Amino acid sequence: MFVRTVYATGDPDRIGPTLEGLATEAVDLLSGQPGYRGYGLFADRTVGKITMGSWWESAQAERDSDAALGTRRRELLAPLAGTVTTDVWEAVATAPPGVAGPGAMFRLSRSDIDPAKVDAAAEIFQDQVLPVLEKKPGFVTGAMLADRATGRLSVGSIYADRASFDAARGPTADSRAHALAALGGTLRSLEEFEVVLLDRRTPQA
């Protein structure tokens, strides 16, 4: 699968209308496109940050949906009136889709590795990291996304509530440090967001 992520920043006082518009329209707009497999909307209301990702069954489906919906996406983000960055990733390792309700939290890390080690990173995440995370109380789902050309990785995990999210912070930090040390990678960012909306579809056979 392929994932288009959008990272937007702006005046925190204007984040509310943007989130409301996205939460109201995004899933209906995206699910009308061929190959749609899911959407997540995450926010840091204090700082004025939004990140969101839409999941697609193929690279072509991602490109076609972007061409069809890019203008409306820009309109929905306009109230925030800040910066917008869009990236496309391959989902190289994923946990089964989960359900997240009110109070759920999202942890996002970005790192750089040698592009030749992307498959090794995916194997570590799938075989060593996810089994540990899946045993944690409140774990909902997680994924590793990669840009194979550059070796950039984006790793996200979702927890059902603040308590389980906080409790997993230390063990997750240890797993991340060990994995990056094994890969010779560099952590670029670590962020935490509330889950505003999560819609994940089970991949079709």
Results as ranks from 00 to 15, higher is better:
P34V: 10
A143S: 11
P79F: 08
G170L: 15
V92I: 03
G48I: 03
R200Q: 15
I158Q: 01
T202V: 10
M52P: 02
L187V: 11
W89Q: 06
D166K: 12
G21V: 01
V140H: 06
P131L: 14
A93R: 15
S111N: 07
Q33W: 02
E194M: 03
L130D: 02
G38T: 03
G184F: 07
G185R: 06
M1F: 08
E191K: 13
L197F: 08
G98F: 01
H178M: 10
Q60R: 09
R107V: 12
A78L: 02
V195N: 02
R188H: 14
T5N: 05
I158W: 10
T71D: 15
E25L: 07
G32S: 03
G184A: 09
P79L: 06
G185W: 12
A67H: 03
R74C: 00
F193E: 06
P12S: 02
G35Q: 04
D127I: 04
L29D: 06
E191C: 09
A100D: 01
E57R: 13
A120E: 15
A95M: 06
F125A: 11
P12D: 07
R169H: 15
T172V: 08
G32Y: 06
W89F: 15
V3Q: 13
R152M: 13
M144D: 04
R63E: 01
P97G: 01
A122G: 07
G184V: 10
P17L: 08
G101A: 10
A120C: 10
A78S: 08
L76E: 01
G10Y: 06
D11F: 12
T94V: 12
P171A: 03
S154R: 04
T172R: 11
A143N: 12
D174S: 13
F139G: 02
A104E: 10
S31A: 14
I50T: 00
I158L: 07
G48V: 02
A43D: 14
A23Y: 05
T94C: 04
A163C: 04
E75H: 01
T172K: 05
D114H: 05
W89M: 05
D199F: 11
G156F: 15
S175W: 05
L22Q: 00
T186K: 12
I158G: 05
V92W: 07
D166C: 05
L145I: 05
I124L: 15
R45H: 05
T94R: 02
D87Y: 02
L108W: 10
A26R: 04
T83K: 11
E194R: 07
D112Y: 03
R74T: 00
S58G: 05
A167V: 00
F125P: 02
A78Q: 11
M144C: 12
P131A: 10
D64H: 06
R201V: 14
E194W: 00
R162P: 00
F125M: 13
D28G: 09
D66V: 01
Q126G: 06
A120R: 10
V92K: 01
M52C: 05
G40H: 10
G170Y: 15
A205G: 09
S175R: 11
E134P: 05
R73I: 05
R63F: 01
A177F: 14
L197K: 11
R200P: 10
P137I: 12
G32T: 04
E20L: 12
A23Q: 14
A100I: 00
A81T: 11
Y39E: 07
S175T: 13
L19G: 03
F165M: 12
F42P: 08
L29A: 04
R110E: 15
T9N: 11
A121N: 03
L19E: 03
